[in-house]
Design a protein around this nucleic acid. Structure first.
Lengths: 363, 363
DNA sequence: GCAGTCCGTTTGAACGATCAATTTCGCTTC
DNA sequence: GAAGCGAAATTGATCGTTCAAACGGACTGC
């Protein structure tokens, strides 16, 4: 009654290449070839073997395959600290696509947490020595980032989400979002609404990402011959910080009619200040953030924000890493993707600003 | 000049058990014992071998070890769809601790994305047949969840975050947060502020989680002899839905002075309605949400919300799964953790409500 | 009729670790 | 000094797969 190869608890034992071979009356290697080099088999043999494979539900044992071919078909990805500014949810979106893209191509993602670069490198070291993964995806590069150099020294394949700030000749592939362009688009959008005095709330000098975004503001403001003096403030990221920086802008002799912020957290702070002063976002002062976090869509009257194409970034990062792993690509790639401006209530048409604008034009 | 075993590009080849054995002048097995059964070695031999291990930076090859001991030391965890309601960031927090807890105990996490139960089960099947993981962590159980039953049928070890709603005798371990208690605490908090008419904005009947949370409202309201008739509305999750349900409550003949919501998304909708009507949250009408999402802390004047102890859940889930894997635990465990109420401006002391309350007490 | 090709399939070896069985060592005892 | 014994270290087998080489049969050409 009991099937011959069934285990004690009634469950079928896992199919191995040997059991499939037996079932199809061929040798191990023929089964292996059916999956890895089907052209080597006679059509009728191939069909018979494939049938046995599907009958027994056979899939090559991961460890055995890994051991033999010296490739794990696993890539490691670090999770950002959970208190990562106001960008919660951004990682969710990125990681989701990352996993999907990998699995779609026969890879899986091993994710791990780390709270510092050193900790992260320690995990890299562990995973490499154990040959537990084939490569790495590193996210959130910053100035003088030790991780890329470390990986490069070991010859470990990896692709970064984020530019190698401060390095002129990076030896690795990276994908990034053109933050400067995103901010420039925001400025252009505000100009279109009639704004001429556009402030920028940024991070302290020295952070690659922050400086890049600021440069977009400066570039576009200059191109449009807008004033920039005294319209540029900097401080640590955060809602409270964004609020105090905004106050400084608004209290100046000649305050801006629009404020572009380096992050949504800063922008939320800006909106708080407007609310405190009885100013209406979008009508009295326009505000733009960066990241299109969940908060941007939830907060009233909606925060216009620069949205990173995380899905595309994840796809591209995976594509590049797998190219490196397969040896298809030897030279590092540099990919810069354009972000999109999501327009909401905080930068609705501003009649007052328009009026000022027209008056100046008519002069 | 070149070191003998160095590869062409100058990097050291990965250390194997054999190379360590050679270096320490012992056999393979002695090296293995130094790590897995150190008591079998003479102290001086142990020291010598351990020194060689650290000199060469040896770590057992993951695949080889897996193949031999038939255990991968990997657990799989599914990522929720990225559009998972307003709870973005909640997963971040959970996953982070999950990975940390696993790594701390010598395990790693393989994460994958799936957009439906069927897709998720297909991945389970793949991972099991390839012997790619030892066990599973499943999150977000719902009514008549096919996943638990499927895994149980295969004899795959797993632990769920979320109760097996609808099953009276679950055969597996689970950890969950006592949502009913959380909502009851919220009601009690509002009672303490002087509220007597407390409404509940819930999800449609039939979702285990939603019904559980509603029961907490009903239980506590009944215990405090508060009115419940007409104070109970239901609808799909979301901001728009929360807004329309709130309007229905406020437009009733005898509207509530406080509203407890089944989720932060609903609560945000409620706050929107208050703003539209010129009512001040916390002073005119109190609002409480659930999940303590980022939005709750960012939105003005702050949303009081029930916070799940995700860190503890993750720790416990991992602990249980590893107990099952090691065979330490045979009987399934059931763990219910209490949430915490995070109080913010949306439920600040309400003078008006207090006044009504006092008047009634004085009667 | 026999060597030479080619195609399809099989056999042997290896990947790097651990388990099980065996051998060697060091010490006591008669 | 040989036997006995427990501890310490070694060797052989195995996990499940793929690579490399060998093999056998059918077909070709002289």
């Amino acid at each position: 009654m009991a099937r011959p190869r069934a285990s004690a608890d009634g469950r079928q034992p896992r199919a191995t290449i040997e059991s499939v071979a037996e079932h199809a009356h061929v040798s191990r290697q023929t089964v292996s070839n059916a999956l890895n080099a089907p052209h080597r088999l006679r059509p009728d043999t191939l069909e018979r073997v494939l049938r046995s494979i599907s009958d027994l539900g056979y899939r090559p044992n991961h460890a055995a395959r890994t051991l033999r071919i010296q490739a794990t078909r696993l890539v490691a990805c670090r999770l950002m600290p959970s208190n990562y500014g106001g960008t919660e949810g951004v990682l969710d979106r990125f990681l989701h696509v990352l996993c999907e893209a990998c699995r779609h191509r026969g890879y899986d993602v091993l994710s791990f947490a780390a709270n510092s670069d050193e900790e992260e490198i320690a995990v890299y070291d562990d995973l490499l020595r154990r040959t537990a993964v084939d490569g790495f995806l590193i996210a959130g590069t910053h100035f003088v980032d030790p991780r890329a150099a470390w990986l490069r020294d070991r010859g470990a394949p990896f692709v970064a989400f984020g530019r190698p700030w401060g390095l002129s000749r990076p030896g690795h592939s990276w994908v990034d979002v053109d933050g400067a362009q995103g901010i420039a688009d925001a400025v252009e959008h505000l100009v279109g609404l009639g704004h001429r005095r556009i402030g920028f709330v940024g991070w302290p000098e020295g952070s690659g990402v922050g400086d890049d975004r600021r440069s977009g503001w400066l570039r576009q403001a200059t191109a449009r011959r807008l004033p920039v003096r005294g319209l540029d403030v900097r401080g640590e990221d955060g809602i409270a910080s964004g609020a105090s920086l905004t106050e400084r802008l608004l209290d100046a002799a000649n305050p801006p009619t629009a404020i572009v912020c380096v992050s949504d957290a800063m922008a939320v702070g800006a909106l708080d200040v407007l609310a405190d002063r009885g100013l209406q976002p979008g009508r009295d002062v326009a505000v733009v953030g960066f990241d299109d976090s969940l908060v941007a869509s939830v907060i009233r009257p909606g925060l216009t924000s620069v949205r990173q194409p995380l899905e595309q970034v994840a796809e591209k990062v995976v594509e590049l890493l797998l190219e490196h792993l397969s040896g298809t690509r030897t030279k590092p790639a540099r990919v810069l993707l354009p972000p999109a401006l999501v327009i909401r209530g905080s930068s609705a048409a501003s009649p007052r600003a328009r009026f000022i604008h027209r008056k100046k034009e008519n002069q």
